[in-house]
Simulated assay, not measured.
Amino acid sequence: MIKYLFFAICIFTPGILTAQTWNVQSTNISFQASMFGADVDGTFKGFKGSVIFDPLHPESASISGSVDAATLTTGNSLRDRHLKEKEQFFEAIKYPRITMKSTKIEKAATGYTGTFDLTLKTVTKSVKIPFTFLKTGSNAIIKANVEINRKDWKFGGNPIGMSDKVKLNFELNLSPVNL
């Protein structure tokens, strides 16, 4: 009897612990930096990625994505061109994607904390990002905010008046993949 029970557990447990796969329906990826004390807000489009997440088993989750660096917009076309083209900034033609991939996700006091490898041009650094996962009916929303130091990615050079801190904001609107 025990051997049959063990066999049943081995067969059915992986299905129970399998995280939900989600389609990313829409995103809002934005950033905020400061230049001479004035905030500069911007956005990115062209998100591609995958989300596998079960709020009860975050350790089995996998979240990855990238945005198209050439879609950067700050509302100022001269600044946008400068940021997209200059060597100390995005060089969007040479480095078309900015990528993130989770390496660990765990439950936190409020929501979750993900450890992600963030790659900007040729530099990859690990970043801890707190986030929330909110189910809305059968759909869900992931929201995250984090502040990074741009110099950790050798980004932006040393212009006078530019803050080293950059705030990143992510919102992913998800729908379940029907298996």
Rank of each mutant, 00 (worst) to 15 (best):
L5Y: 06
F7Y: 13
I9F: 08
F12P: 03
I16V: 15
A19Q: 06
Q20K: 14
W22Y: 08
W22I: 12
Q25L: 04
Q25W: 00
Q25P: 00
T27M: 13
T27C: 06
F31M: 14
Q32R: 15
Q32T: 15
Q32A: 14
A33Y: 09
A33R: 04
A33C: 09
F36R: 03
G37P: 04
A38R: 08
V40T: 12
V40H: 13
G42A: 06
T43R: 03
T43I: 13
F44P: 00
K45N: 14
G46F: 05
G46W: 05
F47W: 01
F47M: 14
K48T: 12
S50V: 09
V51F: 09
P55C: 09
L56S: 10
P58M: 04
P58F: 08
P58G: 03
P58N: 01
E59S: 13
S60A: 12
S60D: 09
S60H: 07
S62F: 04
T71C: 04
L72V: 12
T73Y: 06
T73N: 02
T74P: 07
N76R: 05
S77A: 04
L78R: 10
R79M: 02
D80H: 03
R81T: 15
H82I: 01
L83E: 01
L83H: 06
E85M: 14
E85W: 02
Q88M: 15
K94V: 05
Y95V: 07
P96F: 02
P96A: 11
R97L: 11
T99A: 15
T99P: 11
M100S: 12
K104T: 05
K104S: 09
E106Q: 14
A109E: 03
G111R: 00
Y112T: 10
T113S: 08
L118E: 10
T119I: 10
T122Q: 15
S126M: 10
I129Q: 02
F131N: 00
T132Q: 02
T132Y: 01
F133E: 06
F133V: 01
L134Y: 04
K135T: 09
I141P: 00
K143D: 05
A144V: 06
E147Q: 13
E147V: 14
I148N: 13
N149K: 09
R150V: 04
D152Q: 13
D152N: 12
W153I: 01
K154E: 15
G156A: 03
N158K: 15
N158H: 15
P159I: 07
I160L: 14
I160D: 13
S163N: 13
D164M: 04
L168A: 03
N169M: 13
N169V: 09
E171T: 03
N173L: 05
N178M: 02
L179I: 06
L179T: 11
